[in-house]
Design a protein around this nucleic acid. Structure first.
Lengths: 173, 173
DNA sequence: ATTTTAGGTTGCAAAATGAAATTTAGGATG
DNA sequence: CATCCTAAATTTCATTTTGCAACCTAAAAT
C-alpha cells in the first residue's frame, strides 16, 4: 500500500473530491433515481411508480439533484402541471460511476445478470468493464497503482528508471 | 438515450445489480471508509481520527463492510487487542467506482484538485479518466450507448462496424 | 362547475445518526 | 498479583432523517 497517507480530515479543509461527489450522490435513493433517469424516466409520477419511493423523499431528492445541477427541472409548455426532469451534462457524466457500481454488484452479487444491458450503438455489443486506465489508455488494476502527491509528479516523458521502496503498490500488505 | 425502459421495480424481483451494490456501499460513510482503506488505513482508531466519524457508526459500518465481504477483519497475533481491517479482492475491485465518483467530483466540483493522485507505478503518470468502454476497449460516451435486453443481443461477429483492434490508446483527458 | 391529474406539502411515528460515557478484553508496569 | 493503559465496541440519549398517509394546489378535462 502506498506510503503516503492522504489527510482526509475534512476539518482542516478537504482536498479530495470524493466527499464532494458523495454530498450530491451519497444518499440512498440518489443513484436509483439517476438510473431511472438514464432509462428515460422524466416525470415525478414515473419515478414514484418505478422506484416505489415515498413521495416526500422523491420530491426532496429531485430538488437536491436539481440544486446540485445533476438534473434540470423544466415546467412543460403544453401542460404546465407537468414538470420534466432531465439529466444535465453533469448528471450524464455520472454514468461511468453508476456503471462501475452496477458491474461490481453484478460480479460480486449472487450472479445477477443485470438486464437491460448497455450496448455500443455501433456494433450492438455489450460494453466492457469500466476500468481505470493509465494516461495512455492502457487499463490498469489496483496492483499497478500508487498514490502520489501532486508536487511529486514527474513531467510526462520522464518515466522512472528504477523502483525503490516508495513504490509499493496500492494493494500491497 | 435508451429506448427500452428498464423495469426497476424491485417489488417483483429486481434484475439490476445496482441496488445490490448500493446495499453494500450506499451509506454515507461507506465510500469514505473505503477511501481511507485504499490509503492504507487499517485500524479502528486510524479510521476514527482520519474521518472524524462517530465511533458507533464506524463500528457499525466496518461490521457491515466485513459482512458484505468488502473488508476482512483479522485479530492481530502479536497484540490481540488490535484488529486489522483489510480490503478483500471484492473490496479492492470497488476502486474503479470510487475513482469514477472522485473524478466526477473533481471535474464538476469547485475546481478541487484532489490530492494525492493515483499514478501508474510504471511511468508515474497520473491515471486517465475512468470511462465506459466498448467490448473491444474503445472508450465510449453516453451518446453512443443504448439499452438492450439480453435476448436481443447480437452474437459477437455479426456486428456492423467492427473494430477488432485491441485497446485504442486514447490519450486521456 | 366539477373532476381528474401532476406534482407536490404536511404531520407524525419509526429509524438512522452522532457525541459522550461505559464496557470488554488484552497488555504493560510496579 | 493489582493497577493502569489501550484498542475496539457498545450503550445512552438527543437530534435528524426517513417513510407512510393524508392533504393541498394549479392546470387540464369533462
Amino acid at each position: 500500500m502506498g506510503k503516503l497517507r492522504e489527510p482526509l480530515n475534512m476539518l482542516y479543509g478537504d482536498n479530495c473530491a470524493l466527499p464532494l461527489a458523495l454530498e450530491a450522490m451519497g444518499e440512498r435513493w440518489s443513484f436509483m433515481i439517476l438510473r431511472a433517469a438514464f432509462n428515460g424516466v422524466h416525470h415525478f409520477e414515473e419515478f414514484q411508480q418505478e422506484l416505489s419511493i415515498a413521495r416526500n423523499i422523491l420530491s426532496n431528492r429531485l430538488s437536491k439533484l436539481v440544486d446540485h445541477g445533476i438534473m434540470a427541472r423544466e415546467v412543460m409548455a403544453e401542460d404546465r402541471r407537468k414538470v420534466r426532469y432531465e439529466l444535465t451534462e453533469k448528471g450524464l457524466e455520472l454514468l461511468p460511476a453508476m456503471i462501475a457500481l452496477r458491474q461490481w454488484g453484478e460480479k460480486w452479487g449472487a450472479g445477477v445478470p443485470s438486464t437491460p444491458v448497455l450496448v455500443d450503438v455501433l456494433d450492438e455489443q455489450p460494453i466492457g468493464p469500466v476500468t481505470i486506465t493509465a494516461h495512455d489508455g492502457r487499463p490498469i488494476g489496483y496492483k499497478e497503482l500508487v498514490w502520489k502527491h501532486r508536487s511529486e509528479l514527474q513531467p510526462l516523458g520522464q518515466a522512472r528508471a528504477r523502483t525503490d521502496e516508495r513504490m509499493a503498490p496500492v494493494a500491497a500488505e
